[in-house]
Design a protein around this nucleic acid. Structure first.
Lengths: 160, 160
DNA sequence: TATTGTTATACTCTATAACTATA
DNA sequence: TATAGTTATAGAGTATAACAATA
């Protein structure tokens, strides 16, 4: 690993090149949401994804993970609930809390999103050789692992 | 290349795995905008990115590339212009057209975004070996090339 | 008194529809 | 008449501030 006081010219150059090359993947990954039924906004979908990942979560933690404030998250939940995608329940341990969970339709929407993404990716990946596809997968998994390693570092020495 | 009537079990499996592994990269790539000064919304930034890529573009084509309608794009341009990031000019050939271009501040903001992204990526990439970093770069460039190849196919046989 | 959410208000984003200017 | 944009209106997303319920 490279310390903060060492210079690595290759790193900054590779970062710049990765930034440019990643745009194609990002565009495919993010555009799947545009063809969902029912149509949900990007904000609503992000909220659903957080709840899907957490399983059960209270409103404050949802807001935190969205980088929003509780009042905004509350409004968002109003509409997701009205759309039948999210359910609010009173907290069992602390009655001040509102526990959120996906409804069946909410779960189905998330699954539809994943299938759309996989189909979109597949339409690109089929133009690559099996070896190149597998190389991409390994590289992305390596990136995810590196990010996890970085987060451990964050706890000891904040990187920002 | 694999035709539409052949079965490739590995492709769908790899697509699913790539979808999962790509999330880490996408999250790093998309979060850079949150720390820009001045703060611009995601919509505004997308519009600026389109204008930055095109150099000069009229309002109708901007709307088209944003997947929005002209009135929405016009409102967006109102605010970008008020923020000093975008300039409107009357079309030279056709006086009905409004040609858009970035101001100096607009260009600086786009550059700031790219630098943020590269810094964010660098903080993850430094936890990978130089060989792994380079492998990621090649894999992403391969994906971008495959997407370009797919778009040529699109012209002959739409994939949706 | 502190914490968890919600509601009141205001500004941004977006679409539909009606409008102006130019071709 | 058709095309390029803008403006009027309305609903969604978000933040600040004030509020209610629970701990």
């Amino acid at each position: 690993m490279i310390g903060p006081h060492e210079v690595d010219p290759a790193l900054s150059e590779v970062s710049a090149a990765v930034e440019l090359a990643a745009e194609a993947l990002v565009s495919v990954w993010t555009r799947a949401q545009e063809r969902l039924t029912p149509r949900v906004s990007a904000s609503q979908l992000r909220a659903l994804m957080v709840v899907a990942r957490e399983g059960r979560i209270n409103l404050g933690r949802l807001a935190e993970q969205l980088g929003a404030i509780p009042s905004s998250a509350s409004r968002l939940c109003d509409r997701l609930q009205a759309a039948g995608l999210l359910a609010r329940e009173v907290g069992a341990a602390d009655r001040r809390e509102v526990m959120l969970r996906l409804t069946k339709r909410g779960q189905e929407l998330i699954e539809e999103l994943r299938e759309q993404r996989r189909a979109d990716l597949g339409r690109v990946l089929r133009h690559m050789t099996p070896a190149a596809r597998f190389g991409l997968l390994l590289a992305l998994q390596g990136f995810a692992a590196a990010m996890a390693a970085g987060h451990v570092d964050d706890a000891r020495r904040p990187l920002v």
